[in-house]
């Protein structure tokens, strides 16, 4: 469809007309009162703009604050994690924190279980309780007598019974020591030397003497079965062939320990220990009992 030249002309004329009319309107409009925003409104807007600017300047400080908080948190977390890993370092037995005064409940119960499995003997327990009371009396007597430094050692509740005997002061300045090869058989004799016992304790003494071999055997089995226990109730070393510093034990001491195991009829443990000994000291001569 083509447009008639007349129509085109009239449309162009209309176009020019409305543009002219627009110019007239614009001229009339410019003569109108020039409304301005109120001064208070101006102030409010400018204050808003200033506030926004100030808020922008404060933003970096907020960022620093958040960063500092995060840093402190990370630092604290690192320290906590590091402390958790510290017990795994060599030099501490079994990688566990062992309190010298109080071994953990789990260790205590496992030790008791082991002891119970080896010698579930009523007579033995009775003997232990008798000895405990004797020792208490003895320590009290010692205190009364001379006030020497043989104060009763506060045996931790969870410490093994063997440790109790080890720390008993028999006479002034003299202590029984399991480390010295289970000399509990000497204990009955030593009991006689304890002063301060009354006659009523005579029965207890005699019972203790009768049960001494049993106690010794039990203690030996216990020591062989469990990890060695020092005078403070600590577990001494993770392995029998190495001491705390990680060095090999003295071969003679080791042989004594092996003999003890044989005597206690702990043949499995003996086999293991013997193999470890052979590995450590291949040329060291063994006693006849162990060679079989």
């Amino acid at each position: 469809m083509t447009m008639d030249p007349k129509d085109r002309k009239s449309e162009a004329g209309q176009g020019r007309n409305w543009e002219r009319d627009l110019e007239v309107i614009q001229a009339n409009y410019s003569g109108l009162e020039a409304n301005e925003p109120p001064d208070l409104l101006d102030q409010a807007i400018l204050n808003t703009a200033r506030r926004e600017m100030a808020a922008k300047r404060r933003k970096p400080l907020r960022w620093i604050g958040a960063f500092a908080t995060a840093s402190v948190f990370v630092l604290a977390l690192t320290i906590v994690l590091q402390q958790d890993h510290e017990p795994m370092k060599p030099g501490r037995p079994n990688g566990a924190k062992l309190d010298a005064a109080a071994p953990s409940e789990a260790q205590e119960s496992s030790r008791r279980d082991a002891a119970g499995a080896v010698a579930p003997d009523d007579g033995l327990q009775e003997s232990r309780s008798m000895e405990r009371s004797l020792l208490m009396k003895q320590s009290a007597a010692g205190k009364r007598e001379d006030g020497l430094a043989t104060e009763p050692v506060s045996v931790p509740a969870s410490a093994p019974i063997v440790a109790e005997f080890e720390t008993v002061p028999v006479a002034a300045g003299k202590e029984l020591s399991v480390d010295a090869d289970f000399r509990l058989e000497e204990a009955p004799a030593e009991l006689d030397s304890i002063e301060g016992f009354t006659d009523e304790d005579a029965e207890l003494k005699s019972k203790t003497r009768q049960n001494a071999p049993m106690i010794n055997e039990s203690a030996a089995r216990k020591q062989a079965a469990d990890k060695p226990v020092d005078t403070m109730g600590n577990v001494v070393a993770a392995t029998a062939d190495k001491d705390e510093s990680g060095e090999l034990a003295d071969p003679e001491e080791w042989i004594q320990r092996l003999l003890l195991l044989r005597q206690s009829e702990l043949y499995e443990k003996l086999e293991e220990e013997l193999a470890a000994f052979r590995k450590a000291y291949p040329d060291h001569p063994l006693p006849r009992e162990l060679e079989n």
């Binding site: 020039a34 409304n35 301005e36 925003p37 101006d42 807007i45 400018l46 703009a49 200033r50 600017m53 922008k56 300047r57």
Partner: peptide
């Protein structure tokens, strides 16, 4: 961050925008 620039800008356009 130049507040002065905004003041100039505002002064230029406050009337026409308001109307």
């Amino acid at each position: 961050g130049n507040m002065e620039a905004f003041e100039i800008l505002y002064e230029r356009h406050r009337g026409p925008l308001y109307r």
